[in-house]
Design a protein around this nucleic acid. Structure first.
Lengths: 129, 129
DNA sequence: CTAGGTGCAAACTGTTTGCACAGGC
DNA sequence: GCCTGTGCAAACAGTTTGCACCTAG
């Protein structure tokens, strides 16, 4: 666990489903960065990948834009706000029945599913008024 | 409706959830192509977009890879095969209750949802034996 | 000392776009 | 003849990778 890896993990925990680039921006701008604090975008990508493989963070695919990362480890669903483009948690339990039903109907071996909701998030909703 | 647009539409109908590049490959390789049959990748992208806006095809986001397109117009779900990387239909009805439940739990305005299953498709399953 | 992690820049993939030209109405 | 669509190539965003150096164990 290097200094950089630690920072990436902390950044993902501090942010709301950041992309790699947002993580990079957060690390390089937020802290008063010293010489030894330098970090490159390539390292961000590499560490996000490693942390995901280690099961310390989760990758959240959001439509066709950049990959988002999530510090919450339990499986759950997400909403992509059509206005601000951010990804938020939807506090609903993972529904295994959906997998079973899909397996029945499709003839495929189903391992899991993601649900991505589309709509307008709480913040953007209230701004509209 | 130009010659090229027609071909793009026909290609999407003939293929199983192709990406733009697969559509391009299909059109340029499959037919005995004459001089006037030339088509460029840029045109493929433009026409896929137009056809989607016109509601003649649907865009199917599949994880973080390339966008896939679908000639079926009713809303339904998809599975991304972890082995061959192709996208298939899952013949399950769109479940509006999921939207209602998510709206209750999240405080967001939910418009719709996509479900992307992950697993192994029928073909790849049978190949394993 | 050694294996792995890092910065940097170049490469790569999927997609969009500016421009001049061609073709349908 | 006008307006939209087209081919082409360049640009672009997100991501990966090759390489030499650095650093934690």
């Amino acid at each position: 666990m290097t200094r950089q890896r630690e920072k990436v993990l902390k950044a993902v925990c501090s942010l709301e489903h950041p992309t790699a680039q947002e993580t990079y921006a957060y690390i390089t701008s937020n802290t008063g960065l010293q010489a030894e604090d330098r970090i490159s975008l390539g390292t961000i990508y590499r560490n996000l990948q490693v942390l995901e493989e280690e099961g310390r963070i989760a990758a959240v695919p959001a439509g066709q834009d950049a990959m988002h990362y999530d510090a919450r480890l339990d499986v759950h669903y997400h909403i992509l706000c059509g206005k601000c483009g951010k990804v938020f948690d939807v506090p609903m339990q993972y529904n295994k029945d959906i997998d079973l039903e899909a397996e029945k109907h499709s003839g495929c071996r189903i391992e899991s599913h993601d649900i991505l909701f589309r709509g307008i998030c709480k913040n953007c909703c209230s701004e509209e008024n």
